[in-house]
């Protein structure tokens, strides 16, 4: 299986490390220019391409690690060439585009995977398993917390351009929207407030969202680009009828480093705990086996689309100061 990675930024680099741990081979990288793709191509003994179109004949699977606003066109190209596709989250910036993306892949007969990596983090996967086991009973309230610092970029910071990333709710909180749906099912109502809706010039981004699931479970989602780099904290509480699950990344850090050094934070923070296998690798292995042997994956493209739907509703709620009611199951999705 030959893999072509589109986008050689932070996520392209992270995915490349993961693919190496699978039987697949990375054969190509492409970025805006050949020069940009060259470094990773050299490192992985792959070819640097000037465009996705040029790379397509030499790969079997396309892994899209580009800014969100570029996803649809790249998926179209790859699907038209009959390639299975892995697409970074969020799938798209709006529901219509996402639905179109799913349709394009279905019509072309290619598989589309969405990289909602949080489902592959062992602490989140373990919590899901405990809930699914049923001993704790039904979840009643859920807290999901994810906060780090504003993504940095040397030039053209697409993360901070709402038209390109969808902002904090779409780019960061969507992880937890997807996870909340995984734990407690479909969402009925979304109410969100953001610092941006209060003060658009604020030097921090922070969003609080209350989701009401169709079964009545309440989820509270905290997302932030507000801490000083390199802090990245995540946390979850799943409070059930017959017990509670609690995780806090700070409290569960097995190592605390108290060494003097110059602050040197990566452009984009990733939550990290020492593990034998990176969650990104776990994720890509699962996608590999799904493509190679047709096995099921824990997160589908439709899940990705539904997460986009919740994030879009949250953005509308924050902008308009009102709850947004989602269409029940069976609507356009």
């Amino acid at each position: 299986m030959r893999i072509g990675i589109v986008g050689t930024g932070f996520m392209g680099t992270t995915h490349a490390k993961g693919w190496v741990e699978t039987p697949a081979r990375i054969t190509g990288f492409c970025a805006e220019t050949v020069a940009e793709a060259a470094a990773l191509a050299d490192q992985y003994h792959a070819k640097a391409f000037a465009s996705l179109a040029a790379m397509l004949p030499e790969v079997d699977v396309v892994d899209i690690c580009t800014p969100t606003y570029l996803h649809l066109e790249q998926v179209r190209l790859a699907a038209a060439a009959g390639k299975d596709i892995i697409c970074e989250k969020p799938l798209t910036l709006d529901v219509e585009t996402g639905a179109e993306m799913l349709r394009v892949c279905e019509d072309a007969g290619v598989r589309l995977f969405v990289a909602h990596v949080v489902r592959y983090f062992p602490e989140y996967a373990a919590a899901k398993k405990i809930v699914a086991d049923g001993k704790l009973g039904k979840p009643g309230t859920i807290h999901l917390r994810r906060c780090n610092y504003r993504p940095k970029k040397a030039a053209g910071n697409w993360f901070l351009d709402d038209a390109k990333s969808g902002g904090l709710l779409m780019d960061l909180s969507i992880h937890d929207f997807d996870y909340a749906r995984w734990i407690a099912g479909e969402v009925k109502t979304v109410f969100s407030t953001t610092v941006g809706s209060m003060d658009k010039d604020a030097p921090v981004d922070y969003a609080l969202t209350i989701l009401t699931h169709e079964d009545g479970t309440l989820s509270h989602i905290t997302g932030g680009w507000a801490y000083p780099a390199p802090n990245f904290q995540t946390g979850l509480d799943i409070n059930c009828e017959r017990g509670n699950i609690h995780f806090d990344s700070v409290a569960s850090a097995p190592i605390r480093v108290l060494i003097r050094e110059e602050q040197n934070a990566p452009d984009v923070g990733l939550p990290a705990s020492p593990l034998a296998e990176s969650p990104y690798t776990t994720e890509l292995k699962e996608f590999y086996h799904a493509i190679a042997q047709g096995e099921a994956v824990r997160v589908t493209a439709l899940d990705g689309l539904k997460a986009v739907q919740i994030a879009c509703a949250a953005r509308v709620s924050a902008a308009e100061g009102r709850p947004v009611f989602l269409e029940p199951q069976g609507g356009v999705l």
Binding site: L208, H220, N239
Partner: peptide, 22 residues
Amino acid sequence: AGMAMLKFRNGVFASIDCSWSR
């Protein structure tokens, strides 16, 4: 179980979970 979002006159907002979840 309950969750609330408060908006203050000066624009500050706050979410509170007040549930008997323990």
